[in-house]
Structure formats: structure tokens, C-alpha cells
Nucleic acid binder design. Structure first.
Lengths: 202, 202
DNA sequence: TCGGTACCAGACTAGTTGGTCTGGTTCCTA
DNA sequence: TAGGAACCAGACCAACTAGTCTGGTACCGA
């Protein structure tokens, strides 16, 4: 029997993330996480002080991956073209192309589950979510401002809000997929978002 | 002591709706609903067979109000102008103008809470949510098709997906408001949505 | 006036939940 | 090779949860 603490911890986090996204945080029991990650109560509470501590670790890991995903997409968009407006479109295309495999990997976003349970939002977990949202806003707002200044000088658009709209589209699309179980909505929504941005930056 | 069953039932529903939107379904206990609606266990289980039955009643009422809200906005948009494209913009403006009071009445959407808890989504509650989403899609898709055929003949836009994008913007904006507690995001997102549609239907 | 029905109150219960505790195993270091 | 630290197993517990049951009150038709 090997003793590898970090492996067990990761297994717990993976299982918990899946269950929380699937059923929500309150509906996910510690016993369930233990059973499905093939470990024990002693092990669980060795790695996490409480269920709330698990939630915080979960969000921290998820938000870090989310920001990494963002940075990667921005890098790819910048590598594709030097034109600011085309970079914006390329950015959306990165996610549009990956939409199907994204949805097969996770049927929804952890943020949704965490934010709907106020007990968590008040308990320090929301801070990291806000940081991730801010990262998206800051990065995209800059890109959008450059693109709009070039294509639509003198526009009256709030680039922060437009940047948020990308994030909003993701979260809303996750919900839409969830309602019918049809994951195809994610790609369709990203396509629509791109077409809207194309008409704005034409 | 007056005996008015329907009044008590409504009070329970009002309280439960507030609590579920605020804390989520699983995190909302029957005892809590009873306490805050100033009634008793006997009364609660007289009006509702189970907690799940409450959830179903809650969604039914909410979805009906949602569709009524939609129909009202469409009627107002049609009264404002005969031009299809201008109707679309007027429709969004109805919600844009009412955004602040909408957010003060409810800090989030019941759909989000219900959809994140899979136990409910599988238990017949999602059917009514899907019906409401379909109503939005059908109504708006028709409006959008007329507008696009006029302003952008030969376009390649999926009007169903574009119609869904309006719904998606609402749900995503609710989430965004929730993350920071800043309800101003709702109006900002609706403004951005309108500006994007204006550029598309210019 | 009487009996049935809708409505309501609150004690009670069986099952579940997060969390604790004791004991044991592996590994690292001195 | 001894002993401490990290890791893990699972019995156990106190608190809580949805739902039941018994008893009682207002109303309505006969």
C-alpha cells in the first residue's frame, strides 16, 4: 500500500469537483466524496480541515486553471494576428473551436455552483472567483479598447462591460446547456458572440 | 384566527422563493421556511406533499411569471414601433430600463438555483424551465428573423441561438451580479447587448 | 346543531450529516 | 533501529432534516 498524500488529495479534489458541479455543494456529502474517491473519513479530514476548507481549495484550484486557460487563449490570439480587432475574434474562436471538448470535460462551471450557495459566497470563496472575473475583464477590456479605437473611433461603449459580456456568455451558456442537457448550446452561443463582435468591429 | 389557506400557501411560497434564490435549494431547510413564513410543520405539509413538491410549485409559479414578463415586454416593443429591427431594440430597452428595480426585487434567478441541483433537474422541475426558455427562443427568434431579413438579407446567423443569447445574457448577468454583489452589472450587460444588436441591425 | 372538512400547531421519529477519536501502517531521519 | 511524523481506516457521536402523528380550531352544508 503506497503512501502518497498528494495523490490522495488530488483524487479527493477531482471527485469533489465533479460532484459539486454535478449536484451542487450542499447536496454533495462528505461521505459521497469519500466513497467515490476510494478513501476514508480519516484521510479526508487529514487533508481538509472541514467541508468548507474543501470548497475553498476547490475554488482556488479551479480559478487558477481558469486564469491559465484565459492567458493561453490570449497568447494564441496574439500569435495569430497583430490586428487588435482580429485578435478579439481569434480569441473567441479559440473557445469556439474547443467548445465541444470543453463541455465533455465539464458539464458546467464550478463558479455557478459556488455562487448560488450564499453560505460559501460569504465565506471567502467568492474572493477568488472575483479575482478570476477581474482577470478576464482587465485582459479583454484592453484588447477591446484597442480594437474599438481602431475600428470605431469615438464609440460610446463601456469596454469593461463588453469584456464582462464574454464571461457572461460562458456562464449563461453553461446554464442553457444544463437546462436541456444539450451541450451544443455552448458552441452556438460562442458563435453568436463572435458574429456580434464581428459586426461591431467590422 | 382567520382561516385562509391560500394566503398561507402564498406566504410559504414567497418565503421559500426568497430563501432558495438566496441560499440554494438544498441549503434551504423546511424548518427555516416555516419559521420565516410564520407557520408550522402541520401547515406546511398540509399545503405541500414534500419539499420536492414545494420546489415544483415554486418553479411553476416563477416560470409563469417569467413568461408573462416576456409577453408584456414584447407587447410594449410592438406598441412602440412597427419596424422589426427597432422592435428588437425596444424589447431589450424595456428590460434595460427596468434593470435596477428588477435586481432590487430579486438578487438572482430561481432557474439558476434549480438547475445547479441535479436532483431537481431530474425530478420534473426542469421541464417547466425548458418551456419558459423555449417561449423566449420562439418569440425572439421570430422577431430577430424579421429584423435580420430586412437589415441583413442573406445573413448566416442562427436566429434561435441569437434569441437564446438574450436569455443567456440575463442568466450570466445574474451570476456576475452575485459574484461581487454589484447589481449594476445587470443594466450594463443589457446595454452592451443592445449596442451589439444595434451594430448587427444597423 | 351536528358532523365533516379544511386548516393549523407542535411534539416526535428515523435517518442522515459533518466532524471526532482511537488505532494502525508506512516512511524518513538520526 | 528507534521513534516521530505523515497518512489512512472506520467506529462513533451530536446535531440536524424531512416527514409523521395526534390533537385542536374555524368554517360550511344539512
Amino acid at each position: 500500500m503506497p503512501r502518497d498524500g498528494t495523490a490522495t488529495r488530488q483524487r479527493i479534489l477531482d471527485t469533489a469537483e465533479r460532484l459539486v458541479i454535478e449536484n451542487g455543494y450542499a447536496a454533495t456529502t462528505v461521505d459521497q466524496v469519500i466513497a467515490e474517491s476510494r478513501t476514508s473519513k480519516g484521510s479526508f479530514f487529514h487533508h481538509f480541515d472541514s467541508k468548507l476548507d474543501l470548497a475553498r481549495s476547490l475554488v482556488a484550484r479551479y480559478a487558477a486553471a481558469d486564469i491559465a486557460h484565459l492567458d493561453d487563449a490570449v497568447a494564441r490570439a496574439r500569435a495569430a494576428t497583430d490586428d487588435p480587432a482580429e485578435q478579439v475574434i481569434a480569441f473567441v474562436r479559440v473557445f469556439e473551436d474547443d467548445a465541444d471538448e470543453l463541455m465533455s470535460a465539464q458539464s458546467s462551471c464550478l463558479y455557478v455552483s459556488i455562487l448560488t450557495e450564499r453560505q460559501l459566497a460569504d465565506a471567502g470563496t467568492s474572493k477568488q472567483i472575483v479575482e478570476a472575473i477581474t482577470a478576464w475583464r482587465t485582459t479583454l477590456s484592453t484588447m477591446l479598447r484597442a480594437a474599438l479605437d481602431q475600428r470605431r473611433p469615438g464609440h460610446d461603449i463601456d469596454t469593461d462591460a463588453l469584456a464582462d459580456h464574454v464571461f457572461v456568455t460562458f456562464e449563461g451558456a453553461f446554464l442553457l446547456c444544463r437546462s436541456t442537457g444539450d451541450n451544443g448550446h455552448m458552441r452556438a452561443q460562442l458563435t453568436v458572440l463572435r458574429q456580434l463582435l464581428e459586426s461591431l468591429l467590422a
